[in-house]
Nucleic acid binder design. Structure first.
Lengths: 270, 270
DNA sequence: CATTATATGAAAAGAAGTTTCACATTTCAA
DNA sequence: TTGAAATGTGAAACTTCTTTTCATATAATG
């Protein structure tokens, strides 16, 4: 791409919303190149004509706008409905970010470890105990042998009992909680396959894991992250659960009934 | 609006995506009117020119598309990543539906009852115990006097102890669980203010409530709804929590430090 | 250093969109 | 019912926008 074309591209990428409204003349004037160059440029970019190009820009701009406005900081004059809206919006953004960070490879390895485990144990303390409890509750509905107890000492004892045939799902927002790390060291010593769900990939916890899933929030600074990562953690567990059930049932049953099977296994009347 | 203009409008509304890509000539041909008429028509619609009109169409088309594709049914050949994506998408849709069902009035009444309660107790059994636990965990961080115990018998005893000065948040997906209803009857007898989070507005549970919040999923038929309503329940609780903290701190502190305060109060290192 | 390839803008050519104007249709009052 | 005024419409002129051509400049290559 040549220098002049870069100027145009930069302008378009910087504020697609504005450029998408411009005529080719205006854009030419704004970027100090001729209309001819722009016309050629958009064709090089595989758009049929300038109009198609601006349409595409408008689309990306529309797709980006929610991102820009996706830091719903609670402001002074917010009504209750606004606070609720922002809370929901923030949850949605967290889910999106978490989803984007997932990859097929990790999922495949995690599911393999889960369905081959003699025992599947959940570990989580403090705020993360809720996610661990949810994971336990979900996987109870499968044929797997699952274990979870909210008490730290019992979790530690459970970790000590486990072997290389087992699988542990460890949840911790920060990845720095001492008790959680103690459990992980015990698990590592016993050669247990560890699947970690945390928000920080650099933590010691993430290092020890065979597979790490990141529960992200798209705005970390001004917020109590722990609150929003919970929802991401739950949905990661949910994904693992769905995949596991589909895989387990596929061993024994024709494919067509599998999805229905998931539903039956997960009916909840509470 | 004249007859010819209606033809154009109809065409544009029926498939905005297609029309937004058309030139004025093509649209003229497609709707059997002259280009002049269309040009006048878009001006009557308060668009500066035809180009602006097509842009607007493209926008509405873009806004409509995600709605159409928002029922991510798990299909036979789905890869693991696809299963995960659909799970996340479904969670997002559930949150959106739940958010849309909220209204300022209910929120205001709920927050009032919460901050004036001498004791705030959470009730939830089975799958909903997770949401109840999360609510308890969140509100522990406030100055309120909060109570929750996973055991049914203890929940029932707790309900028996409560008075008209207290507030109960009862969570149940179906709203039909017998034990939960037993608790609610006890609460009602004692005149306790009841806030209900459930997925079915018609349930007996919802009838007994002072305020009902609906945790919705936008596709009910083919799914295990309980799983997705959990995330909606959590975010409703989260909203209530945020509103409560902001309200409580506003009694004693200047407004500017409030938001910061929320963050401090909710830091979570687990 | 000459030669070829590539990039660029001015201007011509071609499309797209708008306005004008003449004619048709409808509305409304007599 | 009828004629005048108002409104709606398309063809064509006109304007504006976009693309292509062509001559020139710049960079790359042997």
């Amino acid at each position: 791409m040549s220098r002049t074309e870069k100027k145009v591209a930069q302008l378009a990428l910087d504020n697609p919303a504005v450029v998408s409204e411009m005529t080719i003349k205006e854009l030419a004037a704004a970027s100090n190149v001729s209309t001819a160059t722009i016309s050629r440029f958009v064709k090089r970019m595989n758009y049929a004509n300038y109009r198609e190009f601006t349409m595409a820009l408008a689309h990306t701009a529309a797709a980006m706008t929610p991102q820009q406005s996706s830091f719903p900081e609670l402001a002074e004059g917010d009504s209750l409905a606004t606070i609720a809206n922002k809370t929901f919006r923030f949850s949605v953004n967290s889910l999106r970010a978490t989803n984007d960070a997932l990859n097929e490879d990790d999922l495949a390895r995690a599911v393999l470890k889960i369905i081959n485990a003699k025992t599947l144990a959940f570990f989580g303390l403090g705020g993360s105990s809720i996610a661990a409890l949810d994971g336990y509750h979900k996987f109870l509905r499968t044929s797997l042998n699952v274990v979870y107890h909210p008490d730290y000492d019992i979790q530690l004892m459970q970790a000590a009992k486990m072997t290389a045939d087992d699988c542990a799902i460890v949840i911790s927002h920060s990845g720095r909680n001492h008790e959680t790390l103690q459990i992980v060291r015990e698990l590592t010593r016993n050669g247990v396959a560890i699947i970690v769900i945390t928000s920080y990939s650099g933590s010691e916890l993430a290092q020890a894991a065979a597979v790490t899933f990141l529960s992200l929030t798209d705005e970390v600074k001004y917020r109590s992250e722990g609150m929003y990562s919970l929802i991401s953690q739950l949905t990661i567990l949910d994904s693992l659960f769905m995949m596991t059930v589909l895989r387990i049932s596929s061993r024994t049953q024709p494919v067509l009934t599998r999805v229905r099977d998931v539903i039956e296994h997960t009916r909840d009347e509470s």
